[in-house]
Design a protein around this nucleic acid. Structure first.
Lengths: 135, 135, 135, 135
DNA sequence: GTGGTCTAGACCACC
DNA sequence: GTGGTCTAGACCACG
């Protein structure tokens, strides 16, 4: 798995890292127990400050997505955090609304949005094999 | 139309305003030529600084969504900006990917996501009738 | 001669009027003694407030480009204002610099700029006949 | 590079800054990747409010001339915005027309205008060598 | 240190 | 009344 960082992006770098790792977990690219690169290794690979990666890992750990074992490394959590049905659904609704608004401004129809979603779905789930990769 | 601002939101206030106005345009709530509240009026209504609203209006104008006429007011643009097929589609794809990742983490299936999208679609398009002036 | 007003332009309307009239004089379209529309007529034709046209005429008169004769109307001045060699040349130099900078950013070469200037020159001077038109 | 601001100028200060920076880019004084002063430093140097410089930087970024990286600074864009052949040419034509009208009112001939343009061209292009960082 | 946002108030030009 | 600009200060997040 290869992370892509854009320093000029509005989203802070540590958030870009968090987002990509959680997306990889959601898409099945990273499974429970998979080992992540150490924050030092990852910072070298991405050519950014180690503190930045550390911050991303710290927050991911606080959220329950990853677990750190002193002396062994960092791993995808065994039990992924259960969703808070209420708040999460509301956020999902909002994001769905935004996606639709954005699509309509771009001239797409509802059916085309669903189509696009289906393509994306296929991409996210087709790489369910390559499992023991590191981040 | 009533804007809702959350000062505690991670998204800057001026962006919240921009988002809600563009969504209103996308959903048909605001049509070409419709007059917006003056940035002063809107700032009073939202209990925020006038400059904050003005910044939102300025950026929306730079993006081509609204037009401003000195001494007369601010209006939804007559010709809304045509989508840039390339960049826009790519951004849409990214957002679709994020929506799916978020939904999967929340335990939803693909079909449930499509369902949720359909509900949202109905809401966005059902208020396509009356409305003449003012935000 | 037909004036074109764009209310959304950054330049104030009364300045748009001033600019177009002085350009018409410079280009030979309007000669000394030519009669202008009354500010009321012009305001009707342009669908703007009479005060706005009045302001443009007032400033043009203060600058010496036009003359008002009570009860008869407004005319292009018999003796056009002589340039202030110093200040005017400096402003010209600045504008020349800006034109070049703008052209270079647009990818043109110096020769192409001169070419473009020549076309413009032809247009400005070829309509030296139609003289007795009103504004 | 030294910016010169005239608070009494009709052109807003932030526009004066924008203009001088784009001209410096067009003239080769500022190259892609060159670092600009932080908006705070520049505001001190020019003795104006930081927000005023920031507004200039923001608009230049929206136009694609400069890029900003959080925590690192602001830089001349790697890929300068490609000209929009249509709109840009039309604006150039207008400005050429205005330059000629202004010159004719000042009593110059067409050849003298071209001469003046040639001088300006030399000035703009002769400082195409050294310069690494800072505005 | 950097940029990002926001405030509360001011003054101006335009219509 | 409208929008346009500017100030002087504040607080925050990021690296």
């Amino acid at each position: 798995m290869q992370l892509l960082i854009n320093p000029a992006d509005e989203l802070p770098i540590y958030r870009q890292i968090m987002r990509q790792i959680t997306e990889a977990i959601a898409g099945g690219l990273l499974r429970s127990g998979a080992k992540l690169l150490s924050h030092r290794e990852l910072s070298e690979q991405l050519v950014i400050a180690p503190l930045t990666v550390k911050k991303a890992y710290d927050e991911l750990e606080a959220l329950g997505f990853i677990e750190t074992v002193r002396g062994r490394g960092t791993f995808v959590a065994a039990k992924l955090p259960l969703p808070n049905p209420g708040a999460d659904l509301e956020r999902l609704r909002q994001n769905a609304r935004r996606l639709l608004a954005q699509a309509y401004l771009a001239g797409l129809t509802f059916d085309q949005v669903v189509e696009l979603l289906q393509e994306t779905h296929s991409q996210l789930t087709e790489n369910h094999e390559s499992q023991k990769e590191n981040v």
